[in-house]
């Protein structure tokens, strides 16, 4: 049980107890290793190495935070969507992101961390989320570029995670990937409409692709030689492919798709390397990536503030519902007692 691992350890263990604990750990580790070797699944109550639990918790909660913060740039356009059909699609999409955040928080909770604690960490600025949501969504075409590039990159990342070694995470990813299949398509269609539209619309589309391309590529994380934790995560089957591998695949897909859109990628160095059989792209500004990650992006403060405000403004509502539930439970108990 997750909770058992978090219970305070008594000050002193007797030698017998120590021996027993060591034996349990050894058995647990052996079983865990077996599960990894079989590419099977770890479930919440299984023994797992502390580092595995910690890494997973960080990964899943960051993913959840990204969904929740990621609602904002798109939610800002719901009120201005230029057709009622687009308004409905966008609303459904942003709502899905709330749902995806919820699925992921649930998965993280099975590791022993309550959601309100994760939410507190997010609001306090102690937790990370995908850096890309700290960029502003300036025009309607950004709804297209976010769907096509950002969700496209996210799906690239997420589809392999449907087979993540941690059961609840994998299951959450299955649900998310199924729902998200429409997200990228609606983004692509927004861009396609714009590209086939007036010159002003086409320019809006190209401008959005230009701005979101590099941040989307950086969503896969730092280059492999600068990603020290990747190897362990891959051994644990909570990361299925390396950052560069996924990035390269993604670039390949975008090269094809951007042609259909009648737009261009803002990268003259994209090419297929015949030797490595991989797609390559131009240099990315990792300094900027680190700056934004460190909190110095265009919208970091704004995004956190909006989340904090919603959370704080909602406190009285959550309290009211909890108080009502407690009162009803008491009433029910009294009735039972009287009867």
């Amino acid at each position: 049980m997750a909770a058992q691992n978090l219970q305070p350890v008594p000050e002193a263990l007797s030698p017998e107890e120590q021996e027993r604990a060591a034996q349990l750990d050894a058995e647990g580790q052996a079983y865990f290793d077996h599960v990894m070797a079989q590419d099977s699944r770890i479930e919440p109550k299984d023994w797992m190495p502390a580092a595995y639990r910690k890494t997973l918790l960080r990964q899943i909660s960051q993913h959840a935070h990204s969904e929740i913060i990621g609602m904002q740039p798109e939610a800002n356009w719901i009120s201005r969507a230029p057709s009622l059909k687009r308004k409905a699609i966008l609303m459904a999409k942003v709502q899905d992101e709330a749902g995806h955040g919820l699925y992921l928080y649930s998965a993280a909770e099975t590791l022993g961390q309550p959601r309100d604690k994760m939410m507190d960490d997010l609001i306090a600025g102690k937790a990370r989320y995908s850096s890309i949501f700290n960029y502003p969504a300036l025009t309607w075409a950004d709804m297209g570029a976010i769907g096509w590039l950002v969700d496209g990159a996210a799906i690239c990342n997420q589809v392999p995670l449907c087979r993540a070694s941690y059961g609840p995470y994998g299951r959450a990813m299955v649900r998310i990937c199924k729902e998200e299949s429409f997200h990228q398509r609606q983004g692509f269609e927004i861009l396609l409409e714009l590209s086939n539209g007036t010159p002003a619309q086409k320019q809006m589309a190209q401008d959005a692709v230009n701005r979101w391309y590099a941040p989307a590529l950086m969503m896969f994380g730092p280059p492999d030689d600068d990603s020290p934790n990747s190897k362990q995560s891959m051994a644990w089957n909570i990361k299925r492919f390396s950052n560069d591998e996924l990035r390269s695949r993604f670039v390949g897909m975008m090269v094809e798709q951007v042609r259909v859109l009648g737009l261009t990628l803002p990268d003259s160095e994209v090419r297929f390397n015949d030797e490595t059989r991989k797609w390559e792209h131009g240099p990315l500004d990792w300094e900027e990536f680190k700056e934004v990650l460190a909190g110095r992006g265009p919208c970091n403060a704004q995004r956190l503030e909006r989340r904090r405000e919603a959370h704080d403004d909602g406190a009285w509502v959550r309290e009211a519902a909890a108080a009502y539930a407690a009162k009803q439970a008491r009433k029910h108990a009294e009735k039972e007692f009287a009867a």
Partner: peptide, 9 residues
């Protein structure tokens, strides 16, 4: 949407 008292809401 993105401002409700709780994510479920």
């Amino acid at each position: 949407i993105s401002r409700a008292p709780e994510l479920e809401e």
